[in-house]
Design a binder for these strands. Structure first.
Length: 319
DNA sequence: CGAGTTTGACCAGCGC
DNA sequence: GCGCTGGTCAAACTCG
């Protein structure tokens, strides 16, 4: 499918042994027990495989477009060997999408992935496309609501890169520096918690995000970003960021926000976040839990959105 | 009054 | 074909 071919996407999990080493200033990544370290010039006295995410990139930057998804991908050990510059990274399940390459990348695949998140997006795009067409017909193609639609349907199958992570928080909608407008909420199957849909309020910015709570652990909020911001952070909030490495939702922890949160990227990668108000860092969890700052962990076993959205951090570049 | 939220409706994809 | 589910729209409503 052209759509898939045009995007980057995550492959469903299957790598059961991703291991993330950790240090106070960074983390390493290994694939199938093969350490995959990312150079770090700022943390020489840490484990060799460690690197300083802060000096490497930041989620915020990534979302802001100042750092591309390729960087993000690299930072997390994604698409480690991709030679060509990536133009985007996408979280989505790869249903049948190229089963061929998928198998190639995921030897143990067995996976689940029941998901339809990716498909859902496609669907939504199409849905809107249709809708827009209808409306266009109704008002001669100048529907006032067009605004939002024009972008999404925009180029029909074109899907935005997605990035999902989990955070341990008591508030559903975490502050991330950007302004969001909620445009929908839906009950999620098999979950007592609804999923909320947000869109960046900045004009021309088509970034969206979905927020929902894990039904397995209500204290965990699953946030999925879709697209990249094409504008800077609101000035008023920018100061709080300082380009620190933290998940988009964590950029500006609200008052009362738990100082620790964890982010789980791929199937078994668990990141812990320890914020101290002023400085914050990501602390990926490693098997031995050596990080002194480890606060909380969370293992995704296999469920709904996460399963679908964050099956693993493996990306694949389109061909 | 503008911006954001709520909520019911609509629609498409998917599985059976 | 039908029902379920996810995603979005948009009118009504709330809030500052």
């Amino acid at each position: 499918m052209s759509d898939e071919a045009r995007d980057f996407y995550y492959h469903t999990p299957f790598y059961e042994d991703h291991r993330y080493g950790t240090s106070a200033t960074g983390f390493s990544f290994s694939l199938n027990n093969s350490p995959l370290s990312i150079p770090n010039s700022s943390s020489p006295d840490h484990e060799p495989q460690a690197f300083d995410p802060c000096s490497y990139m930041s989620f915020t930057e990534s979302l802001n477009g100042s750092s591309d998804y390729n960087t993000l991908a690299r930072a997390f050990g994604l698409s480690p060997s991709s030679p060509e510059p990536l133009s985007g990274v996408k979280i989505e399940q790869s249903p049948a999408v190229d089963a061929g390459s998928e198998t190639a990348v995921t030897p143990n695949s067995s996976a689940s992935s029941s998901s339809n998140e990716a498909g859902g997006d496609e669907g939504s795009n199409k849905g809107k496309k249709d809708r827009q067409q209808k409306e266009s017909v109704d008002d001669g193609g100048e529907s006032s609501k067009q605004g939002s639609k024009s972008k999404k349907k925009s180029e029909k199958g074109e899907r935005e890169p997605r990035f999902a992570f989990m955070t341990k928080s008591e508030v559903d909608h975490l502050e991330d520096g950007y302004r969001w407008r909620k445009y929908g909420q839906k009950a999620v199957k098999n979950s007592p918690f609804p999923r909320s849909y947000y869109r960046c309020t900045t004009q021309k910015c088509g970034v969206k995000k979905r927020v929902e709570r894990s039904f397995q652990d209500p204290s965990v909020v699953i946030t999925t970003y879709e697209g990249q911001h094409n504008h800077p952070l609101p000035a008023t909030l920018r100061g709080n960021l300082g380009g620190m490495l933290m998940p988009p939702s964590m950029v500006a922890p609200p008052a009362g926000f738990p100082q620790d949160f964890m982010v789980q990227m791929p199937s078994s990668a668990v990141y812990n976040y320890h914020g101290t108000g002023g400085m914050s860092s990501f602390y990926p969890q490693n098997g031995s839990g050596t990080s002194p700052l480890h606060q909380q962990q969370f293992q995704i076993s296999d469920y709904g959105l996460l399963q679908d959205m964050v099956p693993s951090m493996f990306l694949k570049q389109e061909q």
